[in-house]
Design a protein around this nucleic acid. Structure first.
Lengths: 234, 234
DNA sequence: CGCGGCTTTGATGTTCATCAAGTAAAGTGG
DNA sequence: CCACTTTACTTGATGAACATCAAAGCCGCG
């Protein structure tokens, strides 16, 4: 992990939006210790946060911004595993069963990561069963989401795939019918298993059919219901 | 879950092969309680063990046999998530974050499930941090495997996909170059995202090229190294 | 014995990746 | 700040890969 970009900052974990997720299971002392030990690291858009093969030292989640988790194959082609939003874990489930990362992470937007020493995390989990259960629930939900999404994408044709990811950006990430795509056309292709050309071609078709409006990376969903139908039925 | 097939049996958890995985973290008393509360359920080949949407009542793992985890879409088509071997968990990670199953499970071979009340499992995990951590590690490893496999399959063409799954059966499941396919051609197709016809066509090509020998469901890998190459490079 | 499901092969057409080529945008160094 | 390089985006043409449709043999089961 790279530490050079900006200064590590601190915030009050009492205020953290993840509090209800698992800090609730801390007593005062635990929370203080956690707060003291955690560090926050800012990363600028485009920078690599974690490289495949790197040793796992921290348990970390995304505090703000947007990051992609991806794998690079032998021929250098990337495959995007998932895109993580604020308060999603960047540490996936392997975090406790592996010693090295099996994927890379890079920042799609300026982002801040909240990190805590993995050993410390384990210690807490060992001692505090409620915390540990809560953590398991959260990690499980993330894994489930990734598995589900991968299956959903796999069964769609090109039109369905593009509609699916447009709806995902609009609904799950930006909660708006108008948004700036955080990823290039190539990255969209890497996410849904298509070629860059066909992503563009499909987007252009959607534009011609007045389903969407495109202005560079800005996209507006004009007929979300129709896109929904395309996503579901191809 | 269906209980009607055969009688629930018991075994000594001290002898269980999963012992080192997490029973090690039990003290004598905990192990006794666990052993008393768990039940073993036999299912005959082809029977449905869990149906999508069903309430999650048990944490369960496969003691013997072979099962498939799958989802059924609106049009009735199945998509196989993964095939679980003995001592794999049938309960995936959602187990603690969901109340209902998001997938179905059916027996590919005569199988025995070891089940324990999910509430009891949670109680133990809450109290025993080591157990809980171990559980998390194991669940994490399973999830990771599923995610990885899904990504691997997605990036292969038909030849690569078929070679990949043949090698998986041979190496991971049966540990032999000769094995009986536990699944129909259609199920292979549902596992790797192809049509049944193209699975058969590809298998026939492999046979004509003397890469494999086929006798109904019995398959022998004659040139595993060549299949390896096909799996990796298409 | 006949029905339904599984397997297999062939013919056909659609979908999609690849190749090629050009424009636009964005970063780089003098 | 501008020429230059590189990267992103876009469209078209082509062929290969793959799904679909059709038909027939096989096997197990009621």
């Amino acid at each position: 992990m790279i530490y050079i970009i900006g200064m590590a900052t601190r915030c009050d974990c009492n205020q953290c939006e993840l509090r209800t997720a698992f800090f609730n299971n801390f007593n005062e002392e635990e929370l203080t210790v956690f707060c003291d030990r955690k560090i926050e690291l800012p990363f600028s858009r485009g920078s690599i946060i974690i490289s495949e093969g790197e040793e796992i030292k921290y348990f970390s989640y995304l505090k703000s911004g947007l990051v992609k988790l991806y794998r690079t194959d032998a021929s250098g082609k990337d495959q995007i595993i998932t895109i993580a939003c604020p308060f999603d874990f960047v540490s996936l489930l392997g975090i406790f069963s592996e010693t090295r990362y099996t994927y890379s992470v890079s920042a799609l937007e300026d982002s801040v990561l909240c990190c805590i020493d993995i050993r410390h995390m384990k210690e807490i989990a060992m001692k505090n069963g409620n915390f540990s259960m809560n953590l398991m629930e959260r990690l499980g939900a993330v894994s489930n989401k990734i598995i589900l999404e991968s299956l959903e994408i796999r069964k769609r044709n090109t039109h369905g795939k593009v509609a699916y990811i447009l709806l995902k950006f609009s609904r799950d990430i930006y909660k708006d019918l108008v948004f700036d795509m955080p990823v290039s056309r190539r990255e969209v292709a890497e996410n849904i298993g298509m070629t860059t050309e066909n992503v563009i071609r499909t987007l252009s078709e959607f534009r011609r059919e007045k389903l969407i409006r495109i202005n560079g990376r800005e996209i507006e969903l004009l007929k979300p219901d129709d896109l929904e139908r395309i996503s579901t039925y191809g």
